[in-house]
């Protein structure tokens, strides 16, 4: 049986792991390769590296980091942050990334999704969507959730999938950093609409939140950062409890 995935997310800035609370003030949470190895050993199903310092000169540092990660771990990993072209993606995949996650650049130019899917296959193209509720509508935001757009979550999700997204990573800006649980209503609606896997992101605080996002939100995977980085939740224990709650895990 296909299992639900647990995905620690490592926010990378200048080669180090950081985690934003509501995407603002950052705290240092360690060496990315060391953390990645620890998570792989503990039973993480996948990892996401989000380069929040993405700029031209930083891109090379990222490629080197990915190579070190790919050498060290034997589970899949996705990389995102500042990706805006076929060339960007080619470099990341060549350095060992399994999937890339695109966000703002896809909103600005949706044809990028189609180009990447055609060149590299839909299986390695993740479209990340940051959204927050404004007057009862989920409004897509850019640049780490700072800039609102005209786009609405569900319509954008439909378009991203029809253009070739192989997976959606949905972060609720309203839930991110709050540790009050995932946006399960929106997640369930997404899961009903689209036929690709959905990764839930934003709001993990307790083991119950993971149970809920799989059982109520129908998420295929759940992503979290600080609860894992600061050892508030251990992955082996989380998996045992999920299993006891009849949620299939590895």
């Amino acid at each position: 049986m296909l299992t639900k995935r647990i995905i620690p997310c490592l926010d990378i800035k200048d080669g180090r792991t950081v985690k934003g609370v509501n995407f603002v003030s950052l705290r240092d949470a360690g060496d990315p390769v060391e953390l990645a190895q620890r998570y792989a050993e503990e039973g993480a199903d996948e990892l996401v590296f989000l380069d929040i310092s993405a700029s031209e000169e930083k891109r090379k540092t990222l490629a080197q980091l990915l190579r070190r990660v790919a050498h060290a771990i034997d589970i899949p990993f996705t990389v995102g942050g500042g990706i805006s072209s076929v060339e960007d993606v080619a470099i990341l995949l060549d350095n060992g990334a399994d999937k890339v996650s695109i966000n703002s650049s896809a909103v600005r130019r949706p044809a990028l999704i189609s180009e990447l899917a055609q060149k590299f296959g839909t299986q390695c193209i993740v479209v990340a969507i940051d959204a927050k509720q404004i007057e009862n509508e989920w409004v897509v935001h850019l640049v780490g959730g700072k800039v609102p757009t005209e786009r609405k979550l569900f319509e954008w999700a439909d378009e991203a999938v029809s253009r070739g997204a192989g997976e959606l990573l949905f972060t609720s800006m309203d839930h991110d950093g709050t540790k009050q649980g995932f946006a399960n209503d929106a997640l369930r609606q997404l899961a009903e609409r689209v036929s690709v896997p959905i990764v839930a992101s934003g709001g993990a605080g307790t083991v119950q939140h993971f149970i809920d996002t799989f059982a109520l939100g129908n998420a295929d995977a759940a992503l979290a950062a600080s609860v894992f980085h600061f050892k508030e939740i251990s992955i082996p224990e989380l998996k045992t409890i999920l299993r006891n709650n009849k949620i299939p895990v590895r």
Binding site: M1, L2, T3, K4, R5, D45, T122, Q123, G166, E167, S195, V196, P197, D220, A221, R250
Partner: peptide
């Protein structure tokens, strides 16, 4: 079911 079939399976 979702396509691609993505993740860990037995």
């Amino acid at each position: 079911l979702n396509v691609p079939h993505m993740g860990w399976n037995t």
